[in-house]
């Protein structure tokens, strides 16, 4: 090193060096703990976990944008937990139901979001288990993640708690603390683009896989075993997606109908036919915009009001 180079640096004593090093590590882990605890509490509020909710919504972004939790609470007069996450598959949802059973003791009805792609593996996030990272302290979640995540990922999340969050979870945590559940997906689906895509065979194919149907049935059994009623809710998806694959689409619907018919305590609320042709309700082919959300929430509230009698309880 040149003498100029040496002049650039000030001598640091051994004591000061170790003090800084250990201080940095300790301070980092302390702040990591505080920040992650704050975010976790926000996330629990956002999802309605550890609350005394009587109704719980379980599903992915389709249901997340499809139901206005605050409106539903107002209409029914009961607390509603909205435990919905982007891209979760049927196996993830089973874990969500297990988690809900453990954390929310008062849940009487689970509204489980279904759609024609519920049993399709393609197209949903392959690493959706990552959304469970914040709950790594729970034994069931820990086991679930250990089985899915890589060794390095698992231990990174285990040791550094803030790594358990990503920006979606961070945003949900902040929304939870602020008490905001609004659907911000304003705008309308571009129907012409969609039609063009469909003509080019660019759409997610419905594929009713037996292993997914089995997991789904297990989830239903689990809820029923815990004295919960299950409403399988089909939040509408745009009808153009249905028409290009009518047969497999109908097959998925018939599975839900069959389960509802066979199992006591399970009902199937299908809003597809009522709204799937109203394109102004959609943000994109499968997600509703705020207008669509309001429309669907009204229907669900009315249904629960007449069929489950929550307003009377």
């Amino acid at each position: 090193m040149s003498s100029k180079d040496n002049n650039e640096t000030k001598k640091i004593t051994k004591r000061s060096f170790f003090f800084r090093l250990i201080g940095t590590v300790l301070l980092f882990f302390l702040l990591d703990f505080i920040l992650s605890a704050f975010l976790l509490s926000g996330l629990e509020k956002y999802y309605g976990l550890n609350s005394n909710s009587k109704v719980a919504l379980i599903g992915h972004s389709h249901l997340m944008l499809g139901i206005d939790k605050e409106k539903l609470e107002k209409e029914l007069g009961v607390s509603v937990a909205k435990y919905t996450r982007e891209g979760v598959n049927v196996a993830d949802r089973k874990v969500m139901v297990e988690q809900l059973i453990n954390s929310n003791k008062n849940v009487q009805t689970i509204i489980y979001g279904v759609d024609a792609w519920s049993f399709t593996s393609e197209g949903l996030s392959a690493n959706s288990y990552g959304q469970f990272y914040p709950f790594l302290n729970l034994r069931t979640i820990d086991d679930f993640i250990k089985n899915n995540a890589s060794f390095a990922d698992y231990w990174t999340k285990k040791i550094i708690r803030t790594t358990r969050f990503d920006e979606v979870l961070l945003s949900s945590a902040v929304r939870g603390h602020l008490g905001k559940w609004t659907n911000l997906k304003y705008g309308n689906v571009h129907v012409e683009n969609l039609k063009r895509g469909l003509r080019n065979d660019e759409y997610r194919k419905v594929e009713n896989r037996q292993e997914n149907i089995a997991i789904f049935k297990e989830t239903i059994r689990l809820a029923l075993k815990n004295d919960m009623e299950v409403v399988l809710l089909y939040v509408p998806t745009i009808d153009l997606l249905e028409k290009v694959q009518q047969e497999s689409f109908d097959e998925a619907i018939s599975i839900f109908e069959q389960i509802a018919k066979e199992k006591e305590g399970v009902e199937f609320l299908n809003l597809q036919d009522s709204w799937s042709h109203e394109y102004e309700l959609f943000y994109d082919p499968i997600h509703l915009n705020p207008k669509g959300q309001k429309t669907v929430t009204d229907s669900v509230a009315k249904y629960l009001h007449y069929n489950q009698g929550y307003l009377k309880k």
Partner: peptide, 27 residues
């Protein structure tokens, strides 16, 4: 490798923020 003119505590705080930023928002 130029020297920062900020107070060492501020600089130290900045490093901690960067580390937390990496762990929380790093992709």
């Amino acid at each position: 490798f130029s020297k920062s003119k900020f107070h060492p505590i501020l600089e130290y705080g900045w490093q901690i923020i960067l580390l937390l930023g990496i762990s929380l928002l790093g992709l």
